[in-house]
Amino acid sequence: MQVNANGNEIIRVEDLHKSFGSLHVLKGVTEHISKGEVVSVIGPSGGGKSTFLRCLNLLEVPNSGHIYFEGTDITAKGVDINIHRQKMGMVFQHFNVFNNLTVGKNITLAPTLLKKKTQAEADEMCKELLNRVGLYDKIDQYPKKLSGGQKQRLAIVRALAMEPEVMLFDEPTSALDPEMVGEVLYVIKDLVKTGMTTVIVTHEMGFAKEVSDRVFFMDGGIIAEKGTPDEVFNHPQNPRTQEFLSKVLY
């Protein structure tokens, strides 16, 4: 499923820089992502993977550079980022499900509040989504009662309830107990099959290799190597990539 780079471009990033104080995390990232493409971002900790992902929906505001989403420069002054965020679902390492809301309310809050759906429509969709991830019986419970894997599945469908164009995953399985990794990856794999444009920061190399159209290897604040999973995992050219992959078991 190789997508033409010039074709259905949905995200374009130009010379992105981000610093936290004196720490220069992103040192000029230029990249594009096409509609329907599945991109995995791998690399060592501190390489800028998560910061790159969080810049895409401006949870981190870059110091310089541009991010175009569906042709709009969302880093420009006066852009209402809230409108664009509605089309970019995000899943976090630590789930971040809303602790004060029931499972059902977690899903229906944003669509109803942001006037995308009536309460009845949202409830209907909520039912469908929860069934899809096997959580329908939890609809009236609070997240406190859920396991890590269940919370993450809830977080995924919460994002899907906004019917996003892109899904961003920030190490979605890193905080899970080992036996719960599978159930979450299964849901993501299912989602990828539907043709959802997906950017996933992950340490699950086997998963990245299996589902991705392209893989970015980030190190030192830049994309040090990129290519198809076969190119990056089986024939890495950059010595840093070779070193990283040799240390990672998968």
């Binding site: 949870l59 944003a110 906004m162």
Partner: peptide, 13 residues
Amino acid sequence: DIGQTEAARSLGL
């Protein structure tokens, strides 16, 4: 937790 805010903002609130 700041994550609660980030999750809400990421949904477009």
